[in-house]
Structure formats: structure tokens, C-alpha cells
């Protein structure tokens, strides 16, 4: 590359570079420093493990995100495959309804979960009429789970449908001709073909669930997921250093998940979202 080309390249990259430095690197660096600015310095990062409330919140968020990701993958893969392989009346409407939640902010999703499973929710009314017991789970981990599932499923369905469309139908026929029963075909042909899509959409689900705030904020009166803990530390406890360390840890976990997924699938993870 000669000097002229090099100069052009620098000019072309400059806008992205400025944006990245101004809105990502500088605040992140500041966050890292703030996190270490307390009286205990860099050791403050250990607090997330040693402070029970922080650690519990971290574990709860991880468990919730992993459960949501796994469940969404199973449910959406089955529905995605079905939708891709069957043509029926109303299919288009059904697909657009299933992908609809992508357009909703987390607050609205939280609100919908309350409408469903809250104190005045539909499930409560029905269960009371049937058994006399009012079932309410909107404000617990179960409520969060339902809400997160709601916005995770469309991400996976769309990716799976795209991957299933590209599958060569002769592969399944070949496996069948060799005597493979249906479960073997799923294991040996379909899942391997969907693997990149599953990893990509799984990573997106996980990352979104780790960082989701709106839904948690609407529902979480007595549950602490990591984004909620950060919010509480920052606004109520004015523990700015603590909020910063938690933010950095949350960011690192999410980034690592996306990075691993990108390497495993070998395809463009971001494009899958």
C-alpha cells in the first residue's frame, strides 16, 4: 500500500473512528477507571463476587439468560422449521405476528406480562374462577422469563427460517434412503445444517437477555437482575464505582458470548439479529 492509498484509507475510516472513540472507547475507559476509583482501587472488581447481593444478581441473570436462550432455541426451531416447510392459509399473517415483538420496547413487553400474569391478569382471573386460587407470577423470575421469551422467539424464528430455506432437501431424502429414522435425520442432517443459525441467534438471545432493562424495570419489584442492580446502585445508592464495575462485567460477559458465537459459527452473528 503506497502512502497515497494509506492516506485515503485513513480519511475513509476517520468518521467511524471518531464515533467509536467518542461514544464507545472513551466512556468505557472512563467506566473502567470509575470502577477502580473507590478506596480499594482495582480490587473493587472483586466485589461482584464477594458482595452477596451483586453475586446473586449476576448468577440470577446468567441462569435466566441461559434458560431463556435454551428454551427459545427449542421452541423457535420447531416452529421455524414448521413455518418454513408448510404452506397454509394465514401463514404470512402468523409469521408477521410472531415477529411482531421485535418492534416493542421492553416496557411494553413488561406491561403485557402484567396484563397476562399480574394481579389483575388474565391467568389470575381464569385460575381463580377455576380453582379459587389466583395465580400471579408476573413480578417474579417466571414473569421475566415469559417476557424475555416473548422478544427472544422472533429473533430465533427468523434466523431458523432463513437457514431452513437454504437446506438442500435431497440431504434428508438421502438419509432416509440409507434407512435413517426421523430422529436420526434431525440429529445428523437438520441440526448440523441449522447449527450456524442456532449459535448466532442463541448468542443474540443471550446477549439481549443479559442486558434487557425495560422489561425488568417494569416487572422486577423484588427480583434483581444485573441491569436492575446497576440501576439501583447508580440512582438510589449513588454507588457510582459499584455501578461501573457491574457494567463492565456485564459488558464483558455479553461481548465474550458474541465473540465465541462468531468464532464457532464462522458466519456473521450480527447479521442474524
Amino acid at each position: 500500500m503506497d502512502r497515497h492509498e494509506y492516506r485515503n484509507l485513513v480519511i475513509l475510516v476517520l468518521p467511524t473512528g471518531i464515533f467509536c472513540v467518542a461514544f464507545f472507547l472513551l466512556p468505557m475507559a472512563r467506566l473502567v477507571l470509575i470502577g477502580a476509583s473507590g478506596e480499594r482501587g482495582i480490587a473493587a472488581y472483586l466485589d461482584i463476587v464477594t458482595t452477596p447481593r451483586h453475586f446473586e444478581s449476576l448468577i440470577a441473570t446468567l441462569v435466566l439468560s441461559i434458560t431463556v436462550t435454551a428454551t427459545a432455541l427449542v421452541v423457535a426451531t420447531i416452529s421455524g422449521l414448521f413455518l418454513e416447510r408448510n404452506r397454509f392459509k394465514g401463514r404470512g399473517v402468523l409469521i408477521s405476528m410472531l415477529t411482531f415483538p421485535l418492534a416493542f420496547p421492553g416496557v411494553v413487553i413488561g406491561f403485557m406480562v402484567i396484563m397476562l400474569a399480574g394481579r389483575q391478569g388474565l391467568i389470575g382471573i381464569v385460575s381463580k374462577a377455576l380453582t379459587g386460587d389466583k395465580i400471579v407470577f408476573a413480578y417474579s423470575m417466571a414473569g421475566l422469563f415469559v417476557g424475555y421469551m416473548y422478544f427472544s422467539i422472533p429473533r430465533v424464528i427468523l434466523t431458523i427460517m432463513a437457514a431452513a430455506e437454504k437446506m438442500n432437501p435431497a440431504l434428508e431424502e438421502a438419509a432416509r434412503s440409507l434407512g435413517a429414522p426421523q430422529w436420526r435425520i434431525i440429529l445428523d442432517v437438520i441440526l448440523p445444517a441449522l447449527k450456524p443459525g442456532l449459535i448466532a441467534s442463541g448468542a443474540i438471545c443471550f446477549a439481549t437477555s443479559m442486558g434487557a432493562f425495560g422489561t425488568a424495570f417494569t416487572l422486577a419489584t423484588n427480583i434483581d437482575v444485573l441491569p436492575m442492580t446497576i440501576y439501583t446502585e447508580f440512582t438510589l445508592n449513588a454507588n457510582i464505582a459499584g455501578a461501573a464495575t457491574l457494567s463492565i462485567v456485564l459488558g464483558l460477559i455479553t461481548w465474550a458470548a458474541l465473540y465465541i458465537a462468531r468464532n464457532l459459527s464462522g458466519s456473521n452473528v450480527a447479521a442474524a439479529g
Binding site: A170, E173, A174, R176, S177, L178, G179, D188, V189
Partner: peptide, 18 residues
Amino acid sequence: IEKRKIGMVFQSYALFPN
């Protein structure tokens, strides 16, 4: 097909890529 004990060769080869 899976019970017919046939062998089949496809135009697209249909080899398992994994």
C-alpha cells in the same frame, strides 16, 4: 423409502457436509 432397502444417488450428490 427408509424401509425399502434402496440405494439412491442424487444430481446434487446430497453428501452430508458435516
